[in-house]
Design a protein around this nucleic acid. Structure first.
Lengths: 200, 200
DNA sequence: CGATATGGAGACAGATCTGTCTCTTTCAAG
DNA sequence: CTTGAAAGAGACAGATCTGTCTCCATATCG
């Protein structure tokens, strides 16, 4: 196995274990046993456990966003449809057997020192998701895309947390979607007729 | 100091430390040092650390709910006003210097084994909050109080998480309130005139 | 085949954590 | 004042965790 491959195996295993059991509760040895990589190799790639956590969060960041956005774009074409598809994709996510809530929300709960690199990655992740939603709101032509995006993102976060704590995971996503439809409908009320376009 | 007093001091200190640093990251010794209680006394009252965690979550449950509901009822009278006051009280909560997100959301992130007593307490807490909102929705005369409550609770959870991860804590509560106003407005549209009452 | 580097297995050190136990102090009741 | 229970202080055991280091197998390249 090549050098870079082991690194990826380590990170992937770390992602799984951190997601399921948390960051402090997951020991280095557990990650090593599951990944089949030796301790020596781990410390060749990462200076410390915190750096492994950071690497795991960073890899999962792009991994998750790519997958999430691709699924949305496969399901729906127009911005408005895509904004609603967000919650369908979320529903699918919640049903996964290895769904343990959002890695970043969980990380924030364990690392309270603000200014830490770990917290920064979490902030960036949430920011990127919100930006994606904001772009969709803008493309849709919402009156106030920033505020609408903030509201829709709030619903998303709420759905994740609620799906995680309760067993009725489908309901959380469905409720979020219903609420989102109402909010989108209201934000687009003024633009009901597509004729009101801005003239040059 | 009386026997029961020490128990409360222990639990209160545990609540503070668990909230700030998390459950696995907070050691028994840290709690003892901060509370000034000896290890012997701790283990006289609690069989294990997990039982202390449980006791902390249970005490905080009633403590938080009492304070939260009292603040809402001080601020507003009618059910509709109270539903909106929820987010004002939340905004105030988020501004506290010792705000580290929701203890229960954070606990769920660290204890993934479903069926655990700890998870059950978290579920119960969220359920009680949702029920309170649902009662307000029903008193207000919402068309579908269960669904509206679910939506408003989702906004609340989203606001908590967003306030925790981002620095703009005030914004999260404000956004949730704006969205809540829209959703409540929509749920009450049919009942705009109070004459449409059901006849016997 | 032989030399070299890579990495697995795991011993080890040092820190930390939970939970028990002993010794001593304090404090309150009679 | 005496006596006994409660509780502080902390040593201790045993487990576990991070991070380092040694030893050995293996694989790759000339």
């Amino acid at each position: 196995m090549a050098l870079q491959q082991r690194r990826e195996v380590l990170i992937d295993t770390a992602i799984e274990l951190f997601a399921e059991h948390g960051y402090h509760a997951t020991g280095i040895d557990t990650i090593l046993a599951k990944s089949g990589v030796s301790k020596k190799t781990l410390y060749r790639h990462f200076r410390s456990k915190d750096e492994l956590i950071l690497a795991a969060l960073k890899k999962y960041d792009s991994q998750f966003r790519n997958s999430f956005m691709r699924q949305i774009e496969e399901r729906a074409g127009t911005p408005r449809e895509r904004l609603l598809a967000v919650y369908d994709v979320a529903a699918h996510w919640f049903e996964q057997s290895n769904f343990y809530g959002c890695m970043y929300i969980n990380a924030i709960g364990e690392f309270s020192d603000s200014g830490t690199a770990i917290r920064q990655v979490c902030k960036d992740f949430k920011s990127q998701i919100r930006n994606y939603i904001e772009d969709l709101c803008r493309s849709m032509g919402a009156e106030n895309p920033v505020e609408l995006a903030e509201e829709l993102a709030l619903l998303m976060e709420g759905a994740i947390v609620t799906a995680q704590v309760s067993q009725k995971r489908g309901l959380a996503a469905k409720t979020a979607k219903t609420a989102a439809m109402a909010l989108i409908g209201q934000a687009m009320q003024d633009k009901a007729s597509p004729r009101n376009e801005i003239r040059p």
